Amino acid sequence: MHKVFGAAADISDSDTMKSINAHNAMLASVVMFSILFLILIIGMLIPLFTGAVFGAEWFNDRTVLPTLIIVALLGTCLLLPEFPPSRIAGIIIAVIVATVLSVIVSPSGSLPIDATLPILMFAMLAVLYRGYRSVIRPESLRMKLRSVSPHIIHLGIVLILIGVFVSTNTRIDGSAIIHEGDTGTYNGQPYSVKITGISDRYEGAPYDEYPGSSYLTQIDFELYSGSRPIDRDEVKYITDFKWGQSYTTNYVHRSLTKEVFITPKMVEGDTVNLYMRTAPWITAVWGGIIIMAIGIILLMYTVRKPRAPPKEKENVDRKYEDLLQRELDRLKKK
């Protein structure tokens, strides 16, 4: 009886695998990738077009669960041509168990990160595995690049998602009121800012009773990591009288693991209210974008049909000699 059930299971797996081939799995992966890419684009554009109405947090809270489901499906689709469905089911169960354990143990101390990283790591390992399988195939270099380029794109988008999830949930921000010549510190952030100078001036053509259309205040500062100075720059606070609004310039310092964002919120005399935001792992987003671009370029290059080699020029002299020889042979026969 056990043999009968085992044989039935093997037949079922065999029938399932007939409908699951590399083409269908890759098509499903492309669909998952397209949906993820669309979610990323919408997430980037919503804060730009809606401003404070719908911020990044509003969008992230509503898309995190479907995004994780799609990422899990992407990893599953990548493994379908390589493993039988029964083994893939076991892998998915293992990922679910790892996610539950991660939430319980909470190694990062952040529930969103603990719940998302196991799924994202599963997708990344699936991408790397399929990329490795594409590279070791006995094919020409062009065909290998063509096979591996979609997986490079997938790797880029997974890195972007890791960067977005981690940086969003570990981001630290705060403001400090700093006098000129003093150093301001920020709770929970390893950076401090020293204001080295505050200067102001009018700019533009005269407007109403003002000698200029805008009033600019320039804040010079030094950025410190602990007691070590790492950069020196400036930000500006601009009041536009003509349009009746104020705006600022921003400063961004990027390192291998963090991004520091600084902008003034208010300036009064020799005092400035300076806002700082530290976003760890934001570099993964930029790295993912670069990797994804490389994959797209490789894919476009490899799918381009190679030019047909030019036809060899006919040897006119040879043709003439053959024609002459045939004519002589004909005359001899006469």
Rank of each mutant, 00 (worst) to 15 (best):
H2G: 14
K3Q: 07
A7D: 12
A8S: 12
D10Q: 09
D13E: 13
D13Q: 14
D13W: 06
I20V: 11
H23D: 08
A25I: 01
L27V: 15
V31G: 15
F37G: 03
I39L: 10
I39S: 05
G51R: 14
G51L: 13
E57N: 13
E57L: 13
N60Q: 10
R62W: 07
T63I: 10
I70W: 08
I70S: 06
V71W: 05
L74F: 07
G75F: 00
L79M: 09
E82Y: 08
E82S: 09
E82T: 03
S102G: 09
S102I: 03
S108L: 06
G109M: 11
L111I: 10
L120K: 00
M121K: 13
F122R: 02
L125V: 02
L125W: 01
G131N: 08
Y132Q: 02
V135K: 05
R137I: 04
P138F: 11
K144F: 05
R146N: 08
S147N: 13
V148C: 05
H151I: 03
H154E: 06
L155Q: 04
R171Q: 08
E180W: 12
G181P: 01
G181H: 09
P190E: 13
P190K: 15
V193T: 07
I198K: 02
D200W: 04
G204P: 02
G204I: 04
D208N: 15
T217C: 03
G226K: 15
R228P: 01
D233Y: 11
I238H: 01
F241G: 14
K242C: 06
Q245E: 06
Y247W: 10
N250E: 14
H253I: 01
S255N: 04
T263Y: 15
M266S: 06
D270A: 14
L274M: 12
I282D: 05
I294S: 06
M300K: 06
Y301K: 10
Y301F: 12
V303H: 09
V316M: 13
D317K: 11
E321L: 06
D329W: 14
R330W: 05
